[in-house]
Design a protein around this nucleic acid. Sequence first.
DNA 1: TTGTATGCGTTATCAA
DNA 2: TTGATAACGCATACAA
Lengths: 349, 349
Amino acid sequence: MSETTGPKETRARSTKRTSGKNQAPTIYDIAEMAGVNPSTVSRALSKPGRVSAKTQKVIEEAAKELHYQVNMFARALPTGRTQTIGLIVADITNPAYFDIIRGAETAAAARDYTLMLADSTESAQLELTAARRMLASVDGLILASPRLSDAEIQDLALKKPVAIINRNVAGVASVVAQMNAGVSDAVRHLVALGHTEIAYVAGPERSWMSQNRWECINARCEWSGIKATLLDSEDPTVDGGRRAAVAVRAGSATAIFCYNDLMAIGLLRELQAAGIKVPAELSILGFDNIFGSDFTTPPLSTIKSPLHESGAAALLRILDQLDAEAPVRPDPTLRTELVLRGSTGAKIG
Amino acid sequence: MSETTGPKETRARSTKRTSGKNQAPTIYDIAEMAGVNPSTVSRALSKPGRVSAKTQKVIEEAAKELHYQVNMFARALPTGRTQTIGLIVADITNPAYFDIIRGAETAAAARDYTLMLADSTESAQLELTAARRMLASVDGLILASPRLSDAEIQDLALKKPVAIINRNVAGVASVVAQMNAGVSDAVRHLVALGHTEIAYVAGPERSWMSQNRWECINARCEWSGIKATLLDSEDPTVDGGRRAAVAVRAGSATAIFCYNDLMAIGLLRELQAAGIKVPAELSILGFDNIFGSDFTTPPLSTIKSPLHESGAAALLRILDQLDAEAPVRPDPTLRTELVLRGSTGAKIG
DNA sequence: TTGTATGCGTTATCAA
DNA sequence: TTGATAACGCATACAA
């Protein structure tokens, strides 16, 4: 079919090339322009150093002149590597994840990676589907607050590098901030204020993080000799927080931890709407320190999580797994911190 | 090199296949299992209908049994199509973009596309770089509040489908909400409250949207016979809003529009910190209706933009350009709406 | 150091 | 309707 143009030409592209006008330039074009073999171009462009300085320069100039850009798919085929990593968040509606996304996106961009985003809407089912799909086209996967089972996560991690945020699963890279610092400070603060009973409005049942937070609070309260009770809830959202108000009012606790800021804000507003004064009659604390948590009146006291750093850290963990020769980076110390604003106050007599 | 195992076998994969244990299954594996040619498998799996019902079924069953998943890169090579579309936002820090991201992500997931995300940090330079990079690996590109020049955008649109949000550029698909509805209502409301001079704290200089909003406000004020003045600002952020406070206090306007809610919130808080009562002494209005804009005291009155819908609409515009035979979907009417909360009140004195 | 040849997993073009 | 085979653009053993 295609007439060989000469002995040197391995492959004749003339047909397509001459007809189509705006084809993206390939290494073949560069090779022709630079007077070298395509494979040399490939070498020069992918891993510099394996080609003489002179030809390197010639090739780079040709590439620049042609506005050459590597075809990611063509590269991905033989190597299996794309330059993108996936991020699946449990609920793209929660501002807490925005910070995680930011952190990951920023870190990715800095290392010349791009981010693929997906949302599981708190559904384990959808999460698994999304994860499988993504796994096929990314170099690694970050799961933020996954609802999957440990086994499922470990299974995913078998195929590609995986990092999870806000959860611990044996054998897979985890990024989870130390709850202890923030929680102890918070409980100590509450005790100093005279509170003797604390309640925790829990998050989703399958949430490892909610469990983790509760255990930490409970342990700390026990240590301080005060009572701690667990309150179930529906959704970890503003509305979920609102709906938790009845259970809160039914109980006798005078200080309330909420699973996250979203719930704390909902609870705060619902309580206020019912005429209850915060913090005069009831103290409220959230977790995360999301955008807007200081907009309320009173501004929300909360246990700040290093969300942005977590996103960045997770991405770096992926990259480490990718580069075999990567220096084993020490884990950044991710610690929570008590942010005292106006929603906590002295217990009233 | 590779011994042909038989006349039917076009390609011998035995070497790799037997050694590597966990290779992803390919259409060759399916073909073998189903007793047909790989090309038939391809046909059956890509565009159903071009193969007999019987073989179709056999192939699908084999695919399911093998847990087959198409290799996106291999598919992208001949077709040029990946199933992902890119989204570049001007500032991933601004909650307004979160809603856009959500809208786009949701719409994408529904059509079985995935989203690639990038942030330009309000820099035209970075935006262009990101856009070029993305363009190479996506089917289409959404630019949210681009800082690029018209020419640059048109240039990008030449290569792949592009849709822009919050801006109009000749020849490229644009998604921009009608300002008029919200703004007229707002001005009318302010006039009814007795205000006779209004100021607009502008956004970034190169922002088409800021210009658009100002022109709409100005026209509306002229029509109503009240004065409107333009105030420059630095950043379209909470801090930028805070810094705009001095200019606001120096002026004589009694009602202030801010380019976006972020600035409005910053301005509100700075003013309050200086002892100025809102809305008693000064009325404040934002644009967008972002998450948290109702958390302030007083809650922010704002002109709500259909952010979520805009993101979704932009994605659909891309898909329409992609499918030549797609029905020319009528543009959804995206209109702004005045959301009255507590930050606007009667003019004093 | 550079060139040759081949494979990566699909789709697409022809024949049959 | 199905089979054979050539691209798609790049990377990489191997040879020179």
